[in-house]
Design a protein around this nucleic acid. Structure first.
Lengths: 180, 180
DNA sequence: AGCCGTCCTGTACGGCCGTACAATACGAGC
DNA sequence: GCTCGTATTGTACGGCCGTACAGGACGGCT
């Protein structure tokens, strides 16, 4: 009960890895099952076999990052910079998924309730609130979104760099946004 | 020769305005002709009549911003912060379009040559190069992408705020990213 | 040997997209 | 008044998407 089953799990992992990369590059909606299938040398039905609804793929890819994010949102931080450093560390650790977590999936109003897009935008808003506090000033709003966007952008666009390098430089850069 | 023709131009403008807003909210690919048509109270064929290929819509919406951007890229700046301030001003001025200019349209490798997506990613790369210089250090790369991303994110997420407020706060915030 | 579950393929369907085309309403101009 | 260009509609087509379903290849178990 090993070889056959393990081959399945292995291709399953290869699909997940390929999908993660493609999603990070092009975004969720822009990647079709056929694209993923082509990347791993299968047919799209084979991919659909492993992940029955397409949402499963997104959910399974996001899951570990989402768990970390929930933990992050649950913790208390002395100030904005401290939280932002923690968020930067989190973003770098999960950089292949970060784009999906912050935006992308699901447009504005068309998201059917309970869809993954719903929860994702919730995450984005919670991050913002955690960073900017309750009803922040316009300036604080701008700074908070700027900080969040800087992390997301930098992390996605420098995937070829070692994680440590990115985290060091980015933490400094992002914290610099918050006044001071 | 007025009423009939002017009504056409007016609905044309209304279509453009609605499309600009929808694109800014959901992104280019996520908005269908039917969506735009519904927003202005027409059928999708009516929209298609005014903008024969759908790309026309994107092109026409982007055009003025693209012109400004080209001018911006053509100018010389004493240092990074100066360029970044100019870019921030540009981004705020064209904030309803900025999302399309920086990312979104066209994924990674599937863009047919000559498509709008091609040109758009070119813009993104040129902005980066202008800000980070030729073969920058890893740190400089991170900072440059962080700065660009902060502007894009903040500008899109604070569309309800007055432009001046955003520009002031954002210029400060973005410049803070570049070392210091 | 023979069954069975896992893995994958081929084919087919319904849905939404952008587009093409014929038809209609209507004010403008000779 | 008839014609013409503009603006809009309705219908229809082909393409790509995600999904469903039936079938086949293959190793593990009894």
């Amino acid at each position: 009960m090993m070889t056959t089953l393990d081959q399945g799990n292995e291709t399953r992992s290869r699909i997940l890895a390929a999908a993660r990369d493609l999603f990070a590059q092009r975004g969720y909606a822009a990647v079709s099952l056929a694209d993923i299938a082509a990347a791993v040398g299968l047919t799209k039905t084979a991919v659909a076999y492993h992940f029955h609804p397409k949402d499963r793929l997104a959910a399974e890819i996001i899951a570990p990052a989402a768990d970390d994010l929930i933990a992050l949102l649950g913790r208390e931080f002395p100030d904005g910079p401290a939280f932002l450093r923690a968020f930067t560390s989190f973003a770098v650790r999960h950089r292949a998924v970060i784009r999906l977590l912050t935006e992308d999936i699901g447009g504005a109003d068309n998201a059917p309730p309970g869809s993954p897009g719903e929860a994702l935008r919730e995450f984005g808003r919670e991050l913002f609130t955690k960073l900017a506090g309750p009803d922040p000033t316009p300036e604080a709003r701008v700074r908070a979104w700027a900080a969040l966007g800087s992390v997301q952008s930098a992390v996605v666009k420098t995937m070829d760099l070692p994680a440590e390098t990115v985290e060091h430089a980015l933490a400094e850069a992002a914290v610099a946004i918050l006044h001071n």
